[in-house]
């Protein structure tokens, strides 16, 4: 039989045969959260035509890098609006690259927020503080979206804990974030301690915090750090723990 006639028939047959494995593999990757979703249509508006084509053709990582570098330039020019736009595009292109979510949140909550508070163009303090909190929330937003896309990565919970602790000064949520971080693989060993420290600052949860700190203390010397001792002493005072029931903190610590 002529190849011209036979080949399309065979290719069609193979086309039907491959549909199932292709769909299956796509589902497996989606459930393993390993599948980079097709580029959203709204993202198209943020990319030039060539960039869109490149993004579709499997070179979206490099496009994202270039935009990231542009975002960095925008930061140096303190052009926060443009920066936010670029960061949104970068994270939409590479939703599985944790460093971009982390970096975007950090730029918003730590850099842009400070700049907003010190904005010489705005004489009223109340408005400057309001603008600052707006940037905190933008940072939080990047981290929460990043976590949605990468639920298994501890880095974003870690940053979220820092954001709640240092910027929002919301110790309950900071403690939850550090605890979530500590529960994930490859978490830094300090995450559990941070979760406990933050809990000790939440009014009404002192007893719970004391039990956690006590457990950390009894785990041994690796956790015997000055802050741990300070928080334990603070809670023992606050909870009026009887002297003979207090933990034996080593001398000179």
């Amino acid at each position: 039989m002529r190849a011209r006639l036979l080949a399309p028939v065979l290719l069609l047959g193979f086309g039907f045969a491959k549909l199932a494995p292709e769909s299956l593999l796509t589902r497996v990757r989606q459930s393993a959260n390993l599948h980079t979703a097709p580029v959203q249509i709204s993202l198209r508006q943020n990319l030039s035509q060539m960039g869109f084509l490149a993004a579709l053709s499997g070179f979206r990582a490099v496009v994202a890098d270039l935009l990231w570098i542009q975002a960095h330039t925008a930061w140096e020019n303190t052009d926060w609006g443009r920066m936010k736009l670029l960061l949104d595009t970068v994270t939409a292109l590479q939703p599985r690259a944790v460093v971009f979510w982390d970096g975007a949140a950090w730029h918003m909550a730590w850099n842009a927020s400070v700049s907003a508070l010190e904005n010489p163009a705005q004489p009223r303090l109340a408005l400057r503080v309001k603008a600052q909190r707006e940037f905190f929330r933008l940072g939080e937003d990047f981290l929460l979206r990043g976590i949605q896309n990468n639920p298994g990565r501890q880095e974003l919970y870690n940053r979220l804990g820092m954001l709640y602790r240092d910027k929002f000064e919301d110790h309950a949520r900071a403690s939850d974030a550090f605890a979530a971080c500590a529960a994930l693989p490859n978490a830094p060993s300090y995450a559990r301690r941070f979760a406990a420290y933050e809990l000790s600052r939440v009014p009404g949860r002192e007893a719970e915090a004391y039990q956690t700190l006590k457990k950390l203390f009894l785990e041994g010397e690796k956790n015997w750090l000055p802050t741990l001792f300070n928080r334990i002493r603070f809670l023992e005072e606050k909870l009026n723990v009887r002297p003979d029931e207090r933990l034996r903190i080593p001398e000179g610590r």
């Binding site: 290719l11 069609l12 086309g15 039907f16 491959k18 549909l19 292709e22 593999l25 796509t26 990757r29 390993l34 599948h35 980079t36 097709p38 499997g58 979206r60 990582a61 590479q94 599985r96 690259a97 944790v98 460093v99 990468n150 990565r153």
Partner: peptide
């Protein structure tokens, strides 16, 4: 769908570069 391969399936590079385990 029938005549073209799914090339996205062979893009595991972005995942590995982001530090995710394949």
């Amino acid at each position: 769908a029938l005549f073209f391969p799914d090339f996205q399936l062979f893009n595991l590079v972005d995942e590995a570069a982001a530090g995710n385990t394949i």
